[in-house]
Amino acid sequence: MYLLLGAVMGTLGGLFGIGGGLVAIPALGVLFGLDQQLAQGTALLMVLPNVLLALWRYNQRNRISVRNAMLLIVPSFIMSWLTSLWAVRIDPQSMRIGFVGFLVVLTLFNVIQMYWRKGQSGPQLRHGRWLWVLGLGSGVTAGMFGVGGGVIATPILTGIFGASQVAAQGLALALAAPATIITMTTYALHGHVDWRMGIPLAIGGLASISWGVALAHSLPERLLRSLFCVFLVICAIMLCFRV
């Protein structure tokens, strides 16, 4: 069962460039009754190999700028570590309510961004020198909620920095990889990882994430964004059943 669930999460992670954590967290909380920190830590164990494999696949198809990636990665890594040290001590119920609010805000931002009049996307990012600010913000959400790179960076990279959807998802995966490592390590050291559940989830995700990446490159950009918004709403509704 964990292998099959991991395969579904891996496919969605590859499709949306999020590693599968955003769907894993509400699924583990609702279906298996894990508290919020344990759900996030276990999801991170599944997400880490998925993120690394998806990053490799995206880089094969669309070469990721090392300079842009580093502007995102360094501040994100630092903030993920600091925020995760605080997150493991918060009341699980308060954390879950905060996570639902985070999903609602993110959904609204994505809907607005779909209809936001902006310039054409291109190979060069607009306002590229401000990428470090995005790295800081993504690091905070990664450390607090176990998700950051894909769900935060992707819509901002497309809406503000002018990246295409696929290029943004590749950069978001580069951002997510080191933040996921440090956040999972912090959660694990505080006993918030279920290894028995997380390892088969990770294996299932690794077996399927390439399908999601291939599907992402075959879909129209507007449809991909619409699916992402629907996906966020479903995750928020799932978590509301546990609040």
Score class of each variant (00 low, 15 high):
151 V>S: 03
80 S>T: 02
128 G>C: 09
165 Q>N: 14
2 Y>M: 15
79 M>L: 07
134 L>N: 03
164 S>K: 09
146 G>I: 00
178 P>W: 01
78 I>E: 03
99 F>P: 04
98 G>M: 05
203 I>W: 07
121 S>F: 11
70 M>P: 07
222 R>W: 11
183 T>I: 04
21 G>P: 02
168 A>L: 01
87 A>N: 07
22 L>E: 14
144 M>E: 00
153 A>I: 05
171 L>S: 02
84 S>R: 03
85 L>C: 03
102 F>N: 04
205 G>N: 00
156 I>C: 01
65 S>N: 05
48 L>Q: 09
237 I>N: 11
131 L>F: 06
215 L>C: 10
220 P>A: 09
52 L>F: 15
89 R>Y: 11
114 M>G: 04
163 A>Y: 08
159 G>Q: 08
37 Q>M: 10
124 Q>T: 13
134 L>P: 00
35 D>F: 10
81 W>L: 10
4 L>D: 12
197 M>I: 15
66 V>W: 12
25 I>H: 09
110 N>Y: 12
111 V>C: 05
227 L>S: 07
20 G>P: 05
88 V>H: 05
196 R>T: 11
148 G>Y: 05
68 N>D: 14
199 I>L: 13
111 V>N: 02
85 L>T: 09
75 P>Y: 04
17 G>W: 05
49 P>H: 13
51 V>L: 13
25 I>S: 11
36 Q>I: 07
49 P>R: 09
202 A>R: 04
145 F>E: 02
134 L>T: 06
74 V>N: 05
76 S>V: 06
217 H>F: 08
106 L>Y: 11
222 R>L: 12
158 T>H: 15
72 L>H: 06
238 M>Q: 15
117 R>V: 13
214 A>W: 15
